[in-house]
Design a protein around this nucleic acid. Structure first.
Lengths: 231, 231
DNA sequence: CTGAATTGATAGTAATACTATTAATATTGT
DNA sequence: ACAATATTAATAGTATTACTATCAATTCAG
């Protein structure tokens, strides 16, 4: 029965187009083949060579298209990364909402929510042109850079980070449900979401300062940490 | 008596040159006036315009020196940022070690250590050409970028991040002293050090997902979190 | 006070991050 | 089926960046 409901939800999600803030693109990449190719291959190329070395020229070469055509979809690579990030957090948000629907026990809800934001991601086959596992790797190594810029405040006002903050706010609400008297619900929630990305990064690159191996989930660490902090 | 010892230590620190991994520079900037000017003004300029827009040309203009002269000290701006970061973490490490010397109670040690890595920094007058308050702002907004690159693993092997990891390791040791049975000492310590930077950033830029105002210390949040987690 | 080291000035290169223009191709509406 | 329109491709061009190389000027040290 539970499985059936989950499948029904999954079907639902596969028909919902993930809507991204329209200030992030010049032309919506979801509306054309070239657009989808840009999204799909930018994810692969950024994963391969990193965001710093990624250019629209290289992407054009890879998809046998022209640099200038890519500029018709995105103003610059920073906006493209913001687009990919918004897409990712929207997808996480859907998963979060679905995973806690119909669950009434706050602690159970908390555990499910933490799982969603901390677990290792595998590809979601409902989105053929986007590989979530690879997108997750990009988020782990590149997302932080989207807001560590001189333009944060303007871009924040334009709503480029709302989806990310929405995910954090869902966690905040659940934390408050579990313990309405806890003083630092906001900081705890934002710590978990950002911290999970950092732990996933260092388990690959700074192995001496983490207790996890590359394939481990960091989930248990965060569930224990949050539950103890709220007790 | 305690104050006297602290002052004696402070005098000690003022005579100890903060040594930075010599692979990070071409010529040691501490050995010349121009070198010190480069350090001093790179901190100010990066703080003003951000690391992305910072160039050696602009720095040269500012210190009435030449771009090519700056290249005689640092290979590129990335190495310069790594230098500043190493300097910062070495300075934090000194402060950490001094603040816990002669303290035997592990919990007290823990609280002092967390204070050092989470508190708002003010200028240390023992280092005339380096303004720690501003350097701290740079670390908050730029340090994470030093390791979120495709070259992390090589640079990590070259030891560019040892001082940072040394600070984390000091915390790990103290955490283990407080609770030798806790399974995630490493991840907890690295979470606190990186998390504190993130909380300090968002209290300025993403105010809705933190419980702190710009001038608040995030220390209390972390002390409570760690103590509860270890209990 | 002379030779070595340091710094400054200038020039040059390849790559990046675009903009502009025009041509080629595909799509659509009637 | 065909003209109008939209989309994409190709090419060229610009300012800036991130350097390297060379040589002249200055400083410093024995």
């Amino acid at each position: 029965m539970f499985v059936k409901i989950k499948l029904a939800m999954k079907n639902l999600i596969s028909n919902i187009k993930i809507a991204v803030n329209d200030k992030l693109y010049v032309k919506d990449p979801e509306t054309s083949d070239l657009g989808k190719k840009i999204i799909q291959n930018s994810i692969l190329l950024i994963d391969e060579i990193g965001f710093e070395l990624f250019t629209f020229k290289k992407l054009g070469d890879r998809i046998q298209s022209n640099e200038s055509s890519i500029y018709r979809y995105f103003e610059n690579k920073h906006k493209l990364l913001l687009y990919l990030s918004s897409w990712y957090w929207t997808w996480i948000d859907y998963n979060l909402v679905f995973s806690i629907t119909n669950i009434n026990n706050p602690v159970e809800k908390l555990e499910k929510a933490i799982l969603i934001v901390t677990q290792n991601i595998t590809d979601d086959l409902d989105t053929p042109h986007i590989n979530e596992e690879i997108l997750n790797r990009i988020i782990i190594s590149e997302f932080t850079k989207t807001f560590l810029t001189k333009e944060v405040d303007e871009e924040n006002k334009e709503g480029f980070f709302i989806v990310y903050k929405r995910v954090v706010n869902r966690l905040i609400d659940i934390i408050k449900e579990v313990n309405p008297n806890y003083k630092y619900a906001k900081s705890l929630a934002s710590s978990v979401v950002e911290g999970a990305l950092h732990q996933q990064y260092i388990k690959k690159h700074f192995k001496t300062i983490t207790n996890f191996n590359e394939n481990d989930d960091v989930t248990q660490f965060y569930i224990e940490l949050v539950k103890k902090t709220l007790s």
